[in-house]
């Protein structure tokens, strides 16, 4: 009897709440959906118009010389030809070369950057002794080291890995340091009051508070890493996407170089998405103040 009553009560409440909720959600969803779909439509039209305009000015209208600014159709043709597996002249080897270098340099940068950042960000001695040095080293334009690095490590993959590492390590290091600086002191003190040891404070309070920043640093490092890939390969290499880009530009095959740029954009965006996905999975509680993207 009581059980049934409780059940009906519960179900009634649930159904009531659910209905209410669903109505509101549906209402909001419809409004939002219609508005976003309108804006998506406008976006598609914009893209189509831009591509059409581009095609016209470097194609039939002849405003731009297609040697300098190739029409989108030519770029897509070239892109299709270069794609691995399906294309006629696939560039699989170069893509693999670039991506392997990126992976080595990036992982190395992530490990070193996080470790050093933790040391600097969470210990007072580290902050005082190494913090200012890290900031000053951050200001050195490390990409200008590329010629020297290639002189030391040669034209092969090693020099590329070093360049990628040098470019990608600092975002991770600096954001981890900043993360350590913003850890809530009250929480740390509360932990201590409740008798947590240093190790426990570290594991239960500081690291969870700091971890989102590490991931933000890793996200920034993706872009830097790809820039490093390009710098290393443009400076001197015998393989890789950057080499193809340079060679095709200087051979006046602009369609090909635009296609390489497109491949690079796709690759870096995919890596970014991967890291962002990792962040939403690993630290779902951390809300970023991404003011523009939330609109």
């Amino acid at each position: 009897m009581t059980l049934r009553r409780r059940k009906t009560e519960a179900s009634g409440m649930a159904s009531e709440a659910e209905v209410d909720h669903q109505v509101i959600l549906a209402h909001l969803g419809k409004r939002n959906a219609s508005r976003t779909s309108v804006w998506n439509l406008i976006f598609v039209i914009e893209v189509a118009a831009l591509l059409g305009l581009w095609e016209m000015i470097s194609g039939p209208l002849g405003v731009m010389n297609p040697k300098f600014l190739p029409p989108p159709s030519a770029i897509f043709d070239e892109l299709w030809r270069m794609l691995p597996i399906v294309g006629e002249r696939p560039i699989t080897e170069d893509i693999v070369f670039s991506l392997t270098n990126f992976a080595y340099g990036y992982v190395l940068a992530a490990v070193v950057g996080t470790t050093l950042g933790l040391v600097i960000g969470t210990t007072k001695a580290g902050e005082l002794l190494l913090g200012p040095l890290a900031y000053y080293a951050y200001a050195v334009p490390r990409s200008a080291l590329a010629p020297v690095i290639i002189l030391i490590w040669g034209l092969g993959a090693e020099s590329k890995v070093v360049i990628i590492f040098l470019l990608a390590v600092f975002p991770v290091l600096i954001t981890t340091m900043e993360g350590g600086a913003q850890v809530n002191r009250t929480l740390v003190d509360a932990g201590r009051v409740f008798g947590a040891t240093r190790l426990q404070t570290m594991r239960k309070v500081i690291l969870p508070d700091l971890f989102p920043y590490v991931l933000i640093g890793l996200r920034i490092a993706v872009i830097r890493g790809y820039i490093g890939v390009l710098i290393g390969e443009l400076m001197g290499s015998f393989k890789g996407l950057g080499t193809i880009l340079k060679r095709s530009s200087y051979n006046f095959e602009m369609a090909k170089s635009f296609a390489v740029v497109a491949i690079l954009i796709v690759l870096s965006s995919l890596t970014m998405l991967l890291v962002s996905f990792m962040k939403t999975k690993l630290v779902p509680w951390h809300q970023e103040e991404d003011l523009l993207k939330s609109r």
Partner: peptide, 30 residues
């Protein structure tokens, strides 16, 4: 302006995603 953001915002994010180093060889040609 919300409207301005919706009209050109995504293009700006796209352009931001272009690794600027990649434009160096074409820039020589241009």
């Amino acid at each position: 302006s919300r409207t301005a953001y919706r009209l050109i915002g995504r293009f700006i994010w796209w352009l931001y995603a272009v690794p600027w180093v990649a434009l160096r060889p074409p820039a020589t040609i241009w």
